[in-house]
Design a protein around this nucleic acid. Structure first.
Lengths: 128, 128
DNA sequence: GAAGCGTATATCCATATGGGAATACGTCAA
DNA sequence: TTGACGTATTCCCATATGGATATACGCTTC
């Protein structure tokens, strides 16, 4: 019945453009409510409401500072979104129209993760 | 006023779990409505409704086949989501604890985007 | 304590959602 | 044509949204 609450998960929370905008702002660093209000040009109560939604899905943390409240980004709840969409990436990306390249990149990525030992000179070729 | 329509963009369309499920199913290949209904175990009119939303945001294409309608995935509208979330990836991912690697990957991505201009007549060359 | 600031909460409203049920529509088989 | 099938559409409802406005709360300074 009715649409799922915006506080259900990050998918729903982030469907609202202004909430994405807030997250974009907070990506640069901690901000007080009023600073967000000024940068966005919307009413303060509205910003507080959006922040509440973001808090409830864990996308932001709050910290008291005198009579101000400083909000900080917590990107972790975005992970499921990233992972879900990522599964479709190969279906649109030009980078993936040749399977050998795809596999090569995947293996490089795995190697990077496993031994943190990547090749320092690989800028003259490829993709060109 | 009121929440933005589900048909506003992919962000809103995809906020609904069943719609993500449909896209997951279609990622494997074209499906008729009834096949989706069976795999999801929900009422047929509901599936048709969800498909309509997905159609309106361009996430699926339809094709008539006798009295059936075959739905096919079109992942392109997911791109903005992927790109937006990707901007936050470095904030949680282990792969990004080495800044040099991060910067290198970002520059590659930018180059890829800028050169989108690649030769339309030949698809067998370059890129590798 | 009073005033003022920064922020959160409470109403109010129009809107349209996801679901269920019933039904209309188009196509194929007798 | 008649019927069955596969899909889409219509009507109904409870729900809660985003925004506007007004107000309450907590802290700080006087």
């Amino acid at each position: 019945m009715a649409r799922a609450a915006t506080t259900t998960d990050a998918f729903n929370a982030v469907a609202e453009p202004r909430r994405r905008q807030i997250l974009d702002l907070l990506a640069r660093g901690e901000l007080a409510v009023n600073e967000i209000v000024e940068r966005m040009g919307v009413a303060q109560p509205l910003v507080s409401k959006h922040l509440k939604v973001l808090r409830e899905v864990g996308l932001v943390d709050v910290r008291d500072d005198g009579r101000r409240r400083l909000y900080r980004l917590d990107p972790v709840p975005l992970k499921p979104i990233h992972e879900w969409v990522r599964g479709f990436e190969q279906l649109w990306s030009e980078r993936f129209d040749r399977m050998d390249v795809v596999l090569e990149e995947l293996m490089e990525a795995e190697n990077d993760e496993r031994k943190h030992d990547h090749d320092p000179q690989r800028d003259g070729d490829a993709a060109g």
